[in-house]
Simulated assay, not measured.
Amino acid sequence: MSQDKNKKRVSARERIQEAQRREQQAAKRRQRIVVAVSAVAVLALAGGVAVAVNSASAKDDKNSASASAQLVVPANVSGDNGTVITYGKADAPHTMEIYEDFRCPVCKHFEAANGETVKKLTEDGRIKVNFHLASFLDKNLGGKGSRTALAAAGAALNEGVDKFKAFHDVLYANQPDEREDGFGDVNHILELAGQVPGLKTDAFVKAVTDKTYAPWAAKVADAFNDSGVTGTPTVKVDGKTVNLFVGNSVATPEQFTAQVKQAAGLQ
């Protein structure tokens, strides 16, 4: 009887070891991080993990591929070196900081749950939103989707802050699986831009096609890497971190709004 139990234990251990070996091989093929990011996304949906983890190597990624091109900064930027995108009234007394990567699956979940709430919170002029955008998932997952989407977002920003916000929302609503580099296809990016009324001007299409804002996107990503934020999405209000998950589920718009107002000292 005890021998049977020992055999079962050995068999179970062997199965675990084999599963671990296969997982390690798969992780290497996907540049080690995709499994972790996917797991975080699933856990976030199921019960309380709030961020997609930024890899330790992300801060070392300075997006040097675009460094040699001419730096063109889009209109309507803010912050140090024009790397911040401000939505809402620039002189609003309170500031919400949102840190995101367009390929981050948990960011998509946050945007689906509370993206519209973020917009509503700016409407009375007391809160503005500063977007800090990243591209670390390109290095972690392979591809260029984060950088391509970020550069296209710069082209949208050049057309207007409202155009940027609408394009930002379309990108998250149509985010591909993080293991796929769907945003790396410029033609696909332009197709998605067609969902934003008035965005696809000749200037916008040329800027996206010519990658005019790729060097700027690299600077924006560098600023994120230097921010000290270790995961996406991260939301802070007047320097205080907002919990994006409450208990075992994502914060409802009411819960998110209450946290934001409490952090800002608003009624």
Rank of each mutant, 00 (worst) to 15 (best):
V53T: 09
T234W: 12
L190Y: 14
D124Q: 01
L157R: 04
A69L: 08
G125M: 01
E100R: 01
K8L: 08
N76H: 11
K5A: 11
K261N: 09
E111P: 08
V205R: 08
L43M: 14
H188N: 15
A221P: 14
R147M: 14
V35D: 06
I33P: 04
E14T: 07
Q24I: 12
C107N: 10
N158W: 12
E18F: 15
A12E: 11
E18A: 15
A39V: 14
P176H: 05
D124N: 04
F110P: 11
L150R: 06
D202G: 06
V51G: 02
V72K: 03
D4G: 04
D238L: 04
G115M: 14
N130Q: 09
K5I: 10
G115R: 05
D222R: 13
V53G: 03
K261H: 08
Q20K: 03
G143I: 12
G194R: 12
H132S: 05
F224E: 13
V51P: 00
A92I: 12
P176D: 04
L133R: 04
L266S: 00
H109Q: 12
R147W: 10
R21Q: 11
K139I: 04
F110N: 13
A46Q: 13
E180S: 03
S146P: 06
F183L: 04
Q31E: 11
K236F: 07
F102N: 00
N225W: 03
N158T: 14
K163Y: 05
V220A: 15
L133P: 00
Q24G: 07
T148G: 09
D181Q: 08
H132R: 04
T241G: 13
K240I: 10
P253L: 01
L137W: 01
K62R: 13
N130C: 02
T257S: 09
N130F: 09
E14D: 07
A69S: 12
G48H: 02
E14G: 04
T257I: 06
L45P: 05
A264P: 10
G82S: 10
F164N: 08
S11T: 13
G88S: 03
H94D: 01
A223H: 15
Q262R: 00
K261G: 04
T86Q: 06
R9L: 13
E191V: 12
D60S: 03
N243R: 08
H109G: 07
G48Y: 00
P215W: 00
H188Y: 12
A151M: 05
F164D: 07
G247M: 02
V51E: 03
A44T: 07
D61L: 14
Q31H: 06
R13N: 02
K128M: 12
A134D: 13
A46M: 08
Y213G: 13
T212K: 14
